[in-house]
Amino acid sequence: MDLKEVDVELIVNGRRHKLRVGTNLSLLQVLRDRLGLTGTKEGCAAGDCGTCTVIMDGRAVLSCLVMAFQADGHAITTVEGLAAGKKLHPLQESFLEHGAVQCGYCTPGMLMSAKALLDADPAPDRETIKTAMSGNLCRCTGYFKIIDAVEGAARKIGPASTARGAAAGAATGSSKAGEGR
């Protein structure tokens, strides 16, 4: 079998990587096997479970369905790039506080879907969160704590840190009695 290879440049978590990759490789395979970023997991390799979600140019994408050559020149954020040094991202803090992590296999994908959501809409209501996360399967939690955690993170990020659309949205978000305790 003659597999073509191409040169690509991936900007992953702010770092540039020049690689020669097979045209049959997914972004997921390159992240895990070539760059050693095993935080991103494979759950189905068919776009059904959301486990492999990463952020590409600000949007949540399924890295099992994006071919590596399609990511050429694009900025990608994985779970390893979520914390700023030792400072956890508010989503990570909130997942810890709300008990949103169980087996943890869906967690990286959940975090990336939630980050893409909060980056675009800093004060989503519960229904918006549920819709945004509906492509991420979890078999352990029933999603309750995960949705609580995303709401909690939105409150942490708050209206101050986001210039856009803060007023109405954030007020709704913080008045919701979503959090369990």
Binding site: T38, V79, E80, A83, Q92, G99, V101, G104, T107, P108
Partner: peptide, 8 residues
């Protein structure tokens, strides 16, 4: 184990 899990 939660911290290691949210850090990937």
């Amino acid at each position: 184990d939660a911290l290691e899990k949210v850090l990937g």
